[in-house]
Structure formats: C-alpha cells, structure tokens
C-alpha cells in the first residue's frame, strides 16, 4: 500500500474524451474504455504516479486530471 499523501485520484472529463484508448494502454490498472467509448477510472485511488502522469500528459484532448487524494492539488497535467 502506498504512503498516505501519495495517493492519487484520476478524473476523466467524459464530454471531452474522444475515446482514443491511449490512457488505457499507459495506465491499465486505472483507466478503461467504457461501453460508450469513453475512458473511466477503475479504482477510487491509485499510486501509479508515472503511469497516470504520462496518461494525463499524452491525452490528445486533455480530458484527464490527476489530483492528490490528500490535498486535491493537481498533479498532472502541469
């Protein structure tokens, strides 16, 4: 289990998401494509900082926001 304060929450703006699936390859533990062809989080909190940061930075429409679970601060994209 990750240390408190390292836990991350991922949000997907489902209106913006164009369903490339890119994030689901980068962070397969945290994101999947729903039946409507839009990405959705798989678990309430995550500790995969590199994967989620990469997913947020590479989303072609910036639909992904990664927040610190503790502070609500935006971790990615910056």
């Amino acid at each position: 289990m990750s240390a408190a304060g390292q836990e991350l929450v991922v949000r997907v703006d489902r209106t913006r998401c164009v369903g490339t699936g890119a994030c689901t390859w980068t962070a397969p533990e945290d994101l999947e494509l729903g039946p409507d062809g839009r990405a959705r989080p798989l678990r309430p909190v995550s500790d995969d900082r590199p994967g989620l940061t990469e997913a947020a930075e590479m989303c072609p429409v910036e639909a992904i926001t990664v927040l610190s679970a503790a502070s609500g601060e935006v971790v990615a994209p910056l």
Binding site: V18, T20, G21, V61
Partner: peptide, 15 residues
C-alpha cells in the same frame, strides 16, 4: 456541447 466528429474519434482521432 458535444464535441463534433470532424477530427474523428477513437485511436485514430486527428493528431
């Protein structure tokens, strides 16, 4: 409101 499909959608969404 809803994004248009001009740039496509899915894996090949316009680069």
């Amino acid at each position: 409101g809803t994004p248009s499909l001009t740039f496509g959608a899915g894996p090949h969404h316009c680069l």
